[in-house]
């Protein structure tokens, strides 16, 4: 469904991603893990066109390089950005409506009914400003908003960031339900254990390069994971 080939992203003279290739099949739940600054968010932003990149991003046989960022949602992509980025001064309901900006009202209302079934907490908060929600609720809202456009591939950036372990578990359980319903999910995550527990397959990103990939249950027991997950400094300290 999604095929990323030799993607390179530069911020000035710094190379944030170097020749990264990732592919995701329909119906898969794929996690990409890596430590802080490995380039995870950059990869998602490049797939969504929010940063300039070299290399190919092909989604459902369409090359996305000529597609403007704000048009990618119409192709069936959707992104839950880093730090949730809900609209803080708008109500929960308005946030959800904006998730379906390109769809008609009837469609939006139908989808809103569907997503509040999955996230009942949002229904109680419809008229509240999104900025007043707790971190976990904002994360649910961000996911719900991304679902209104009825995407085929959901991209997620660190759903566990800043959340309590109980809430992380809740978020991931919702994601497994979505996967069961046929949604393809690609998420990047620092919390390797949480992500690999629920994902089918995983990639490990380190300093802008993919260093390891495989089935989740294989990766989860891999010593290399612990090394990549803990980061480079740690590795050097250990080797010394």
């Amino acid at each position: 469904m999604l095929k990323v080939t030799s993607l390179t992203v530069r911020y000035g003279s710094i190379v944030a991603l170097k020749n990264v290739s990732v592919h995701i099949k329909k119906g898969e739940f794929v996690a990409l893990i890596g430590s802080n600054g490995a380039g995870k968010t950059t990869l998602l932003n490049a797939i969504y066109g929010l940063v300039v990149s070299e290399g190919d991003v092909v989604f459902k046989n369409n090359n996305l390089s000529k597609v403007a960022s704000h048009k990618r949602i119409e192709m069936g992509l959707s992104l839950v950005p880093e730090g949730r980025r809900v609209f803080p001064n708008m109500t929960v309901f308005e946030n959800l409506e904006l998730g379906g900006f390109k769809k008609d009202k009837q469609f939006i209302n139908k989808k809103i009914d569907e997503v509040v079934n999955l996230f009942p907490v949002l229904k109680e908060r419809f008229r509240q400003l999104a900025g007043m929600l707790s971190g976990g609720e904002q994360q649910m809202l961000a996911i719900a908003r991304a679902l209104i456009s009825d995407p085929e591939l959901l991209l997620m950036d660190e759903p566990s960031m800043g959340l309590a372990p109980m809430v992380i578990k809740e978020v991931y359980e919702k994601l497994s339900i979505l996967k069961k319903n046929g949604l393809t999910i690609f998420l990047v995550e620092q919390n390797a254990m949480a992500a690999l527990k629920y994902a089918d397959r995983g990639y490990v990103l380190e300093n802008g390069k993919i260093v390891l990939q495989g089935k989740s249950n294989e990766l989860i027991n891999d010593n290399e994971i612990k090394r990549a997950y803990l980061g480079k400094e740690y590795k050097e300290k250990w080797e010394r």
Binding site: Y48, L50, S69, H70, K71, I73, E74, S78, L79, P81, R85, V86, F87, P88, N89, M90, E94, E97, L98, G99, F101, K102, R145, A146, S149
Partner: peptide, 17 residues
């Protein structure tokens, strides 16, 4: 609403289309 969304967060607005 799109105007207000842009006021709140332009990146998130782009993401929403």
């Amino acid at each position: 609403k799109a105007f207000r969304a842009c006021h709140d967060d332009q990146v998130a607005s782009t993401i929403c289309g």
